[in-house]
Amino acid sequence: MQNISQSLAEQLRIGELELSRRKRLLDFDHTDAANLLECLPLIAPRIGELVNDFYLAQTQQPEISLIIGDKDTLSRLHGAMRRYVTELFSGDYDGEYVSSRLKIGQVHHRIGVSPKLYLSGINQLTGLLETCLQELLAEHEERFLRTRRSLQKLMLLDNQLVFDTYIAALQSEIENVNHQLEEYASSLEQTVAQRTQELTDLSNRDPLTGIFNQRAAQKMFEPLKQLADQSLKPICLWYLDVNHFKMINDGMGHSQGDKVLQQLADTIDQTIKQLPKGAQGYASRFGGDEFCVAIFGLGDAQQQAQIQQFFGRLKAIKAVSLSVSLGAAFYSPGHGIEPTLEDLISRADSLMYMAKAVAHGSGDNEVMMDNLPEDTKVQRIPSRA
């Protein structure tokens, strides 16, 4: 990033030491400066004519004529060129001269003069200047030769300075393009990550209710089981379905059936979010009107309390008459064979069907739960909501 408080020479790091080094490399010294200054009185009256000849030849080239564009621009270019030729024979080639040359390069680049066109113009200008000097110094061949040599050195120095600005401008353009590409790549990466996350969420979510699907539930169980094994705290798995769901679909329509499932999913999700501190879990839809809830960190009495709160929330739904049958199976680390998710679901599913048999025709919520530690005892928890 360029510092706009710096001069162009400072930005390009062309100070006094660098300018001196460049002059030495071209063998340009005070003798050359004196040679050129000595010719200023001779060439000054010819500068206007020389500049006219230069632009007359330049405008014959379609590329140059197109860049110049109009009469006013051409007039300004005439004035700038007259000043440039005067400076060539000024004998002063230090900081101010360098700044002037750098600005020439900057302007040429901005208006679209390519390096090949610039060099073509400089070659033409050099030829006109040498022809003019030869005419003015026709009787002083030695003086002409040394002045011409001094002019050639200075023109080479000028070309270096001008092309420094061309190169710097191109580097700046490349940096800008790279910066834009980096921003685009970063934006694209974020978009891809967002879309990937969205697709992952979609693949893990039930489209109707928005809670996790069966596939996600299977992936999430193992980390929860590891947490239970490490902490020696239990997992309770609820498996539940809606009582008389077919009658709701057949009698009230599938849209109402969908609404029932969505309200049930919202109630389950609300229960998960309001678990006591230290407990955690997830809910998923296993298909149709069947749902699975896995809760870590609560004993049987606490689980009973959570189930009763869940039933209470269901009773609070006024839009539809909704009741469920629920089976709850425990996994307690250190007691018996370690079950898989399928094992727990199978046990909870069996308990759920036992609860459904009890609830048959009553319209009440019913739950059957096995005890801690895991054994064959099963208790019915009556609905008090």
Rank of each mutant, 00 (worst) to 15 (best):
E290D: 10
T267A: 13
Q309V: 13
T267I: 00
L341W: 12
A328Y: 08
K318R: 13
Q304K: 13
A279K: 06
D349P: 06
Q262T: 10
S255C: 08
A301T: 10
I307T: 15
L275F: 02
S325G: 03
D241Y: 11
D258Q: 02
Q280N: 13
G251T: 07
L322P: 04
A328F: 04
Q309C: 09
I295D: 06
A328W: 03
A265I: 13
E290S: 04
G257W: 02
G312P: 00
L341P: 07
P333E: 02
V260T: 11
G288T: 05
L237M: 02
G251S: 10
R313V: 04
I272H: 00
P276D: 09
K259L: 10
D266M: 03
Q303H: 02
L322W: 01
R285M: 11
V320Q: 09
V260E: 10
L322T: 04
K318T: 14
Q256W: 08
S346P: 06
L344I: 14
F245L: 02
Q270T: 12
M252Y: 08
Y239R: 05
C292Y: 09
L261K: 06
K318F: 02
V320D: 09
C292F: 13
D241H: 11
N249C: 00
A265L: 05
D269H: 12
K273Y: 02
E290P: 01
I272N: 04
E290Q: 12
D258A: 11
G336C: 07
I317H: 06
V293T: 04
D343T: 14
K315C: 06
S332Y: 10
G251E: 01
A348P: 14
H254N: 11
F286A: 02
F330Q: 04
D300E: 14
Y331T: 09
M252E: 14
T340Y: 00
L326T: 14
S255H: 12
A301W: 00
G287S: 05
W238Q: 12
N243K: 04
A279G: 13
H254D: 00
Q256D: 00
L237E: 15
I268M: 01
Q303W: 07
L314G: 12
N249H: 04
Y331C: 02
L341F: 15
A316C: 08
M247T: 14
Q303L: 10
G278N: 08
Y331G: 01
Q280K: 15
A319S: 11
F245Q: 01
Q304T: 12
F311L: 05
S325C: 10
I307L: 13
A328V: 11
Q263G: 03
A328S: 13
E338C: 08
D241G: 01
L264E: 13
W238N: 11
L351V: 06
I337L: 06
V324H: 08
L298A: 09
K246S: 05
L261G: 00
L264A: 08
S350Q: 15
Q262M: 13
G257A: 08
E338G: 03
S350C: 11
